[in-house]
Amino acid sequence: MAWGKKKEDEEDDIDLESGEGAKAKKSKKNKKGKGKDDEADEEGEDSKKSSKHNRHRSATITALMETRQQASDQYAQAQKAERAYLAKKHASEARTNYAETKTHFAEAFSHLAAGFRGLWHVIRTLPHIMAHRRAEGRRKAEQQKRTRAEERMRKLEEQLARDAERAAEEEEAEKEAAAKK
């Protein structure tokens, strides 16, 4: 269907290959069931119509059709080039991502292996670590006991010193009270 034409207009279109109009084709199809007289009358009409519609394409239409076809081909080539460019671009990004991911996984597995080796060493030396922690705890507890004992001794000595002073003051007060009597 040509641009801007309706189905009704198609009947009047020219058959470009044979040079005959669409109405002439219909009249040929209808000839089968008619007599000789009818055929003769219609041939006269067909010759008039065919001469009227027996035109070839103009150079302008041919040039426009060729231009449209070339533009269509160029558009198709541009789309194909665009798809190829995007595929190449996405493929290069994918290769880069694949290489980075491969490197990260290699590092991750090596770190995981190092982590398990370290864990194995920790498990193997866990009794020593626990013994060291217990020894540290004992040492701190002994130091705290010593500090508390020293604090108690100091307080006791202070208490004894105060008691001794009171006793000395009481004795003096008794001597003075006895001296006054």
Rank of each mutant, 00 (worst) to 15 (best):
Q74L: 12
H128W: 02
A2Y: 05
S72G: 11
Q70T: 09
K181D: 09
D15A: 02
A177M: 04
I61L: 15
G44T: 14
K88G: 04
H121E: 03
E17K: 11
E66N: 11
S58G: 09
L126F: 08
A168C: 08
D38E: 12
A161N: 09
Y85D: 03
A81C: 07
R124H: 07
L156E: 08
E136T: 06
E42W: 14
S58D: 06
T67L: 15
E170D: 04
H128G: 06
K34H: 05
A91R: 02
A113Q: 12
K5Q: 13
Q69H: 10
A2L: 10
L156N: 08
W120M: 13
F109E: 13
E142V: 06
S110W: 03
H53T: 15
A108V: 01
W120F: 15
K26D: 13
H53P: 12
L160T: 07
Q79M: 12
E39G: 10
I129Y: 11
E100L: 00
A161E: 11
Q159A: 05
T96P: 00
D163I: 05
S110R: 05
A141F: 04
M1P: 09
Q69R: 09
D163H: 05
K7D: 06
A168L: 10
A114E: 02
A91E: 05
H111Y: 01
A71G: 11
S27E: 15
E176S: 10
R138G: 05
S72T: 09
G137F: 14
R124Y: 08
L119N: 03
A106P: 03
E136S: 07
R138A: 03
M1G: 10
E42R: 15
F116A: 08
E151Q: 04
K31V: 09
R124V: 06
L160G: 06
A71L: 11
L112R: 04
V122G: 07
R83W: 12
A161V: 09
K180L: 14
K26Y: 13
A135D: 07
E169C: 07
Y75H: 15
E170R: 11
A114H: 01
H132D: 10
K7S: 08
Y85F: 12
A2G: 08
E107A: 02
K5L: 11
S110C: 05
R117P: 01
K26A: 15
A91W: 00
D37G: 13
